[in-house]
Write a protein that binds this DNA or RNA. Structure first.
Length: 274
DNA sequence: CTCCAGGCTTTAG
DNA sequence: CTAAAGCATGGA
């Protein structure tokens, strides 16, 4: 077992996990167990340090974005002098953007459309329980996120029966395509082309493509526009545009290469008062 | 009962 | 091209 460390001021397990970028985690002892693809780790905070206990330090160093200077990102967020963003970067300084498995992001965010987080988590959990491979971590069994071949073999009725609703066909079609083609050709694409290509998969629209790009391909210039962003765009930026693609272009132009981080702070701040 | 959730596809104009 | 209807499900 390896232990990685990070300044807790810039790594709050609760904030990182509950901000909607990841759906597979569970409270455990002093913190959480976190699952990604076929791996697991245990994260917890003691005093001023957040610890990551895992069997594969290299994987989780990248996964938790530990090479990134978050003090600089928080500082940049505050420099825009937008009250909501400053508030998000202050209260949510412990946020981090994860570098997750691309295929897991594709299926997870197809499920996320027009859906709520507790239900999204439940659907993904049932998919893993039924199709994932059994593994063990810290004396407890868990299941991996299934590969595309296993998902494709399950088919639409399986997803429907799990409660995926009308997204059943999206999952079936996209997993069949990826099982056949793979997604290796996507990694080298520049971000604009990556998004364009992701839009050709059934069930992936602009918002889902941006989430996959941001969380699954490490493209920090991506800025997903969902109902919350649309709301804060109107209420906190005085925006009047209705088209989500145009709202996306507005924020990308405003924030540039770190748009994804700003999006997380804004999303965090807006959801705080629910 | 209606409304909404980290929207997308299909169809109509 | 843009606008709106339809879509499963479960909780508030």
């Amino acid at each position: 077992m390896e232990i990685l460390e990070c300044d807790a001021a810039y790594f709050s397990p609760r904030d990182v996990l509950e901000c909607g970028q990841i759906f597979r985690f569970a409270p455990y002892k002093e913190g959480y167990k976190v699952f990604s693809a076929d791996r697991a780790c245990y994260i917890y905070t003691r005093a001023n340090t957040t610890y990551i206990a895992c069997d594969d330090g290299r994987y989780f160093y990248d996964f938790f974005d530990l090479g990134r200077d978050y003090a600089a990102i928080v500082k940049k967020a505050k420099s825009f002098d937008v009250p909501l963003l400053t508030r998000g970067a202050t209260l949510g300084a412990g946020l981090r953007l994860l570098n997750q498995n691309a295929e897991e992001m594709i299926y997870s965010f197809i499920i996320s459309q027009n859906n709520n987080i507790p239900r999204i988590k439940g659907i993904i959990e049932r998919i893993c329980a039924a199709l994932g491979e059994e593994r063990e971590f810290m004396g407890e069994k868990y299941r991996t996120f299934p590969n595309s071949a296993a998902l494709a073999a399950a088919g639409a009725p399986f997803f429907k029966q799990l409660g995926a609703g009308y997204r059943d066909e999206y999952l079936a079609k996209t997993s069949a395509r990826i099982a056949k083609e793979g997604i290796g050709m996507l990694y080298p694409l520049p971000t604009a082309k990556l998004k364009k290509e992701l839009l050709t998969y059934t069930g992936i629209g602009p918002k889902v493509a941006d989430c996959i790009s941001l969380f699954g391909f490490g493209r920090r210039e991506s800025f997903p526009v969902d109902t919350w962003i649309e709301k804060l765009y109107r209420e906190d930026f005085g925006g009047t545009l209705k088209d989500r693609n145009k709202i996306n272009a507005y924020f990308c132009g405003l924030f540039g290469e770190d748009a994804g981080y700003m999006q997380q702070y804004l999303f965090y701040a807006k959801r705080e008062n629910m």
